Simulated scan of single mutants.
Amino acid sequence: MRLESDPVCGEVDLTATATELARLARAIADGEGFISSASASSPDRNTLAGVEVRTAPGSGVRIALDAQRQTLVISGDPGSRAVLAENLQAMATAEDGGHLHIDYFPEHPYLMAGSLPLVVNSPHGGMPAGLYPELAVPGGLGEALAREAARHGHAVGPMEPVEGFAPAAAACRVRGKAQFAVYATNDDERELRIEISADSGWPWGAFGSTDSLAVVAAILHEWCEGASIGQLRRAWTLLTDDPLKAAPPGRVVSTAWRLTLERSRMIRLGDAELAEALYAQPALRVFFPWPSHGQFSLLSSTADPFHNELPRVIPTIDGLWDVVAEGSAQTRSRVLGARLSAGEAAALVAANIPAGSGPAIEGGWPKRESTP
């Protein structure tokens, strides 16, 4: 088992075999035990020594980090622990890949407020095998790309992992300061997302999306042979200069959310906790996430002219959030809630979606024709 703490996203990533996950599930159900991490012999600032399970009074499960001991602590009452144990056991026995996101949101069925977000990776890799069957190989996406290129007589060189992603979900090839990265993180539809940085290391080089591993391998081969960003864009029309332009039709909003939650440097990023809380509200996922100047808006269009119908979330000086309803020519803006937690602010926005709003349209908001 491997445990990694991500101080930027404020979550812990857990990767384990099916046997290790089943053992952890049993310990959580029993309310006691310590499961050591494979990195315990050489921990660093972000790797953890293991998971400790405790019984605790009260209602709910709390997931916390004991920074001094570099240990993840899971505690709670028997009923709540049993639910979490069942979820982990289901992940251990499932035949497909995927991720289990254990994040608190208001009225969560078993997690306590303040619990540390935990991402549990399937023993079978990052994505369901039905969507990405060729990625179910020991080396994941990198090996699958190398094999596909070899089928066409090409060599793409050594592929490297992408920090924060399972091998089945992402891989990259480095050439000097430039990087060719591929992601298979969409678990709703098959999609291989391409991000190519410039030779200077500037991240805004080329972006693309396809469902074909052969196409990705062909583009990667040309890049490895020295093709420039401009040459690649001219040869492959699927490549663009913007990650959202590269999103398949009908998936701009979902792509924007995925990049936001993955903390991609290719998109505007707001507060991570607030973004997670907003996304945890299903009714808000159909709107376009738009953080700006510390605020967070959910828009009804994905391009200029933008259209905002929902309340905005605005930071306070003490780290909390205000929710403000937009004004109009006839009405003034008004504060719906003040000094709220991220979860409370997200719930309030969801409760104040105007009738008839959403889902967001792709492109700019249509201009009304003036009345003569």
Rank of each mutant, 00 (worst) to 15 (best):
V174N: 10
D241Q: 12
E32L: 06
R339N: 13
R54V: 06
N186I: 09
R251E: 12
I35V: 14
M91N: 03
R151E: 15
I102R: 01
D242P: 10
A22D: 12
V137D: 03
A149P: 04
T255Q: 14
L48K: 03
E4D: 07
V313F: 09
A92M: 04
A67Y: 04
A94H: 02
G125T: 03
I361R: 07
F207N: 08
M266H: 15
Q231I: 05
S292A: 14
E11R: 12
A342Y: 07
F105C: 08
A113M: 07
A155T: 14
A18G: 15
M112A: 11
L213A: 05
G319Q: 09
S370R: 14
V349Q: 00
L100Y: 00
R26A: 14
A64N: 04
A150H: 11
V53G: 05
D211W: 00
A22M: 07
A329V: 08
P354N: 11
L84E: 02
H154W: 12
N186R: 15
T19K: 11
A350V: 01
S209H: 06
R312A: 15
G97V: 12
E273M: 10
E276Q: 11
A18M: 02
A181L: 12
H293Y: 08
R2I: 07
A146N: 07
V324G: 02
R147K: 14
G343N: 06
V349S: 04
L135I: 12
W223S: 02
I63R: 00
T210D: 01
P117L: 01
G343M: 01
G33K: 13
H124Q: 13
I219S: 01
Q231E: 15
D318P: 03
V12N: 04
A272Y: 05
E134W: 08
E225S: 14
I74Y: 02
H152T: 13
S370T: 11
L340G: 00
G363Q: 03
W257Q: 06
G343I: 04
M1Q: 02
W321D: 05
R147V: 12
M112L: 15
R332G: 05
Q179L: 13
S200A: 09
